[in-house]
């Protein structure tokens, strides 16, 4: 046994931030995440074991105490726990009727905020990001240029952009260049 020194955690695009008068883009803090796949019975059993209600309608999200559940598909949710970035929820779950897979390190996120946030994203995301079409507290998997992202509108002018870690430099650079055009 070697002596137990804590192993260093290095997240992608750590500490990144750019901002101008209409939009800021920064790397979100580390979080733990679960990709949950389940039948509706499985979803109920999952809710019981974590005491956390899952959204059941397309694009809906649910949040409590720093924990967010995002509806991604009829049998798929992304759970993000900002409060406990180093603690995976998976080991505490039974292994029946659903699949819970730890994806804490697979994903990372950027926070795009400001009155130019939607315009920044629309440089490469084809979705209608008006408040009517993409209301606050809704989410969707979609694309940003050639990267797949999960887009989660946490407030009127704030989006959380989740992507796979190796796409982070691409998403970062794309958002940064798009931000130059966000005042239009």
């Amino acid at each position: 046994m070697v002596e137990a020194t804590p192993t260093k955690r290095i997240a992608p695009a750590e500490g990144f931030r750019v901002a101008n008068s209409v939009v800021s883009i920064e790397t979100a803090k580390p979080a733990s995440r679960i990709s949950l796949r389940a039948t509706s019975a499985g979803a109920r059993s999952f809710e019981k074991s974590l005491n956390f209600a899952l959204p059941r309608k397309p694009a809906e999200t649910a949040s409590a105490k720093g924990r967010h559940a995002l509806w991604l598909g009829p049998d798929e949710w992304l759970l993000i726990d900002e409060a406990n970035p180093d603690d995976s929820m998976v080991p505490r779950l039974p292994n029946k009727q659903f699949s819970a897979v730890d994806v804490s390190h697979r994903n990372m996120a950027f926070i795009v905020a400001g009155p130019g946030a939607a315009a920044t994203l629309n440089a490469a995301c084809p979705r209608n990001l008006s408040l009517a079409a993409f209301p606050v507290k809704t989410c969707s998997r979609t694309v940003l240029g050639k990267a797949e992202i999960v887009l989660y509108r946490t407030a009127r002018d704030t989006f959380r952009v989740e992507c796979w870690r190796s796409y982070a430099p691409y998403v970062r650079d794309l958002l940064a260049i798009a931000s130059k055009d966000a005042h239009i």
Partner: peptide
């Protein structure tokens, strides 16, 4: 049964 990509995890 369900499938999840963990390539980058």
């Amino acid at each position: 049964v369900w499938l999840t990509s963990t390539t980058e995890q």
